[in-house]
Design a protein around this nucleic acid. Sequence first.
DNA 1: CCGTTTTAAAACGGCGCGTATTGTTAATAA
DNA 2: TTATTAACAATACGCGCCGTTTTAAAACGG
Lengths: 197, 197
Amino acid sequence: MSALAQEKDMKKGRPRSDASKRAILDATRRLLSHTTVQKLSIEAIAKKAGVGKTTIYRWWPSKASVAMDAIFTQPGFQNVLPSAPTAAEGIYNQLDKVVAQLNGKNGRIVAQIISEIQDDYEAVENFHKSFMQERCFELAKLVDQGMKSGEFRDDIDIETTVDTLMGPIIFRLMSGLVMTEDYAEKVITAILPGIKA
Amino acid sequence: MSALAQEKDMKKGRPRSDASKRAILDATRRLLSHTTVQKLSIEAIAKKAGVGKTTIYRWWPSKASVAMDAIFTQPGFQNVLPSAPTAAEGIYNQLDKVVAQLNGKNGRIVAQIISEIQDDYEAVENFHKSFMQERCFELAKLVDQGMKSGEFRDDIDIETTVDTLMGPIIFRLMSGLVMTEDYAEKVITAILPGIKA
DNA sequence: CCGTTTTAAAACGGCGCGTATTGTTAATAA
DNA sequence: TTATTAACAATACGCGCCGTTTTAAAACGG
């Protein structure tokens, strides 16, 4: 085994084609701008991307997985946040980012993804790990921090508080209701007075 | 036209078979206890109910509609509530009822129904009219009542407040997270301090 | 009896599923 | 160079369910 092979953890045989991978995700994004996840088909992706169906089935277990990969790797879906002086401001930053990610076309697609995976327990878990969990955990961390610093009351339930912050957004997302850009502010205005010390 | 025909709005031709209707909804309920809405098929319902496919297609536009009909006509899904002395107690009653309706097997099915209809605008509207709207409106009415009576602050946004009450429930429903029987109480404990006068 | 409508049953073409097969290509190992 | 290994595109397959159409019987009112 060569030094290069050791360094890059290379294996025998033809390596995975990065061009095909990009072609598949690109084709999926283009198709999703004109149809829904439900109406999407593996065959259509393969045809548009100029790849074999087997290549898709080899690397993704379902069309929902392909869609998740296509959407979540887009710029704007990384969850990097500016540090905030207060817990309240940190919560606002996080919530506003989620609203920005979900209030437009991408939001419709994410709603369709959540829908598509409902009868697949593993897929639901995968979705939560790759999108929901880190955002909820970040909120929980901020609530906890606010409690310890005295900014918030010390008798609130962290998990339920996170639910009251994230819940309304997902509720409106799944209900097909409009979600304006300032929706995060509205939710925080409703929630904050109840948790402030 | 006879008097009876006029009274009961009878029409010419063979009347709709109530037996077939019941057979279809019964078969759907039985099938849904072993599979998901997504895996349900019109053909399977027709076979199990002993009816023709055409009979189903004549009266329902989709399998999601059949499922909604089958679930929402069950006992326990009527939204009748005891009158409450305070707005807060009224809100608790309403929210607790929703949790009771959605925290078990039926909740999973409702989540699947919401999922199934995501790419059908009319179906989404129909779902909201037949389930979500009346429950949200009831909550909005109670919040408004509490504001006017001085029980709640007068500067809160009704719509957003309803979102913070219903949102967490739908959020957990669609996330596949556990929702205990006392979840309504948890949400109210989190929300109430922020809206009380 | 006649016109109308619903019904169950059966058959239809079509689509996308997930798998299998084939021959080619791009890498490593000897 | 040669052998080995694995990914690749292309193609074909059987299958299940779709939504529609056709047929003949059944259930009503006039």
